[in-house]
């Protein structure tokens, strides 16, 4: 406990030192705040964002707007990706059928699809969700597939000896043992998807004036660099929170599957 306390306080200390460095640079060099505002201005901005409306609303409106787009794309990635990965891992013909197209698409950066996404879905949440889907799904598919392939052969044998057929082996052996790796895929997927969301908001705005990406753009357009930086900080914090909550969920499931 004391170990983690010291690690944490050292981390805070180093972090504070960097903040001080940032502040010192802006102060000593007298940097123009439209170029790089001091951290104090950014923190003031963070404090006022919660109550002062920008574009379509206060900070919470923008956060919820971004989360809605993210959730739409990510949910689709999970709904399609996990079953597809499982199927690819368990049924060789499906794997052979899907892998070539999957491998062909995977190296293309998701944001490169933005113009197509707008063409197909119009300037709305669909286009952004599509980009997020493309970013989040590959790691989800790969890990789900790997999880099934890595199922302990000895457990499969045990299930078969006691009469289990292929579907029962899938449901009662392969699926439960896949949970840790599936979560690994989900965590990478969340990180990819969240990054892609901001990119999508920057290049494929849905016409509304909401979203954390919108706030960054707004800061640029109005020469309020502090707004852009504040929005970036919120993006980072939410990204980290998403990862932490998924990790919590993972631990809960692992406790449930007695892997601890």
């Amino acid at each position: 406990m004391s170990g983690s306390f010291f690690t944490l306080s050292r981390f805070a200390l180093v972090f504070a030192a960097w903040l001080f460095g940032w502040w010192a640079i802006t102060w000593v060099l007298n940097v123009n705040p439209t170029f790089l505002p001091p951290p104090t201005t950014v923190f003031e901005r963070l404090a006022t964002m919660a109550t002062v409306s920008m574009g379509d609303g206060t900070l919470i409106v923008h956060i919820l707007g971004s989360l809605k787009r993210f959730a739409t794309g990510f949910a689709l990635a999970v709904i399609i990706g996990i079953p597809l990965g499982f199927a690819m891992g368990y049924f060789k013909p499906i794997n052979k059928l899907v892998t070539p197209i999957f491998e062909a698409i995977r190296p293309i950066p998701p944001i490169a699809w933005a113009p197509f996404a707008i063409l197909w879905f119009g300037l709305n949440v669909g286009a952004q969700a599509f980009v997020i889907l493309l970013a989040a799904m590959p790691p989800i598919i790969i890990n789900a597939q790997l999880a099934i392939r890595m199922t302990d052969g000895r457990l499969i044998d045990a299930a078969r000896v006691f009469g289990a057929g292929p579907l029962r082996v899938l449901a009662e052996v392969a699926l439960p043992s896949s949970i840790p790796l599936v979560f690994t895929g989900l965590r990478i997927g969340v990180a990819n998807g969240w990054m892609a969301l901001i990119a999508a908001e920057l290049v494929a705005g849905d016409g509304s004036s909401t979203g954390l990406g919108y706030l960054i753009l707004q800061g640029q357009r109005t020469l309020n660099a502090d707004l852009s930086i504040a929005a970036m900080i919120v993006i980072g914090v939410i990204g980290a929170l998403l990862d932490v909550s998924l990790n919590r969920l993972n631990r809960y499931f692992q406790g449930w599957t007695a892997q601890t």
Binding site: D152, R154, L155, D157, A158, F162, E172, V173, W256, Q259
Partner: peptide, 12 residues
């Protein structure tokens, strides 16, 4: 019925 060396119990 079989008893395996590695026990092969379902951990979950």
């Amino acid at each position: 019925a079989m008893v395996f060396q590695s026990f092969s119990l379902f951990p979950w």
